[in-house]
């Protein structure tokens, strides 16, 4: 980095913004991968049902299918907002 760059480099470099955004989107897409094709739709319908009763974020419903031996385990994780 040159002497002049020191004054130019205000704010966040675009490469580090790119890296952060990619890490988030890639992690989300990997989580949905490998499961049955209906998982994303199941996830969005569950989210809709929850939202009928509680105001929650878009990513409040996490859904994951694990395999344990012959058994498939559907893990559902719903984050509710804190009560005020």
């Amino acid at each position: 980095m040159s002497f002049l760059d020191y004054f130019r480099s205000q704010g966040k470099r675009s490469a580090s913004v790119a890296k952060e955004r990619l890490q988030i989107v890639v992690a989300r897409e990997r989580a949905n991968r490998g499961g049955p094709d209906y998982l994303p739709e199941l996830q969005s319908e569950i989210l809709k049902v929850i939202r009928r009763y509680v105001e929650v974020d878009q990513d409040a419903v996490q859904i994951q299918l694990d395999r344990e031996g012959d058994c498939e385990v559907l893990e559902l994780n719903i984050t509710l907002p804190e009560r005020h």
């Binding site: 480099s9 470099r13 490469a15 790119a18 890296k19 990619l22 890490q23």
Partner: peptide
Amino acid sequence: RVQKGEMLSVEDVKEI
């Protein structure tokens, strides 16, 4: 461009 912080570095891409 990597040095200027304008491009993902090889380490960044490997990590992701």
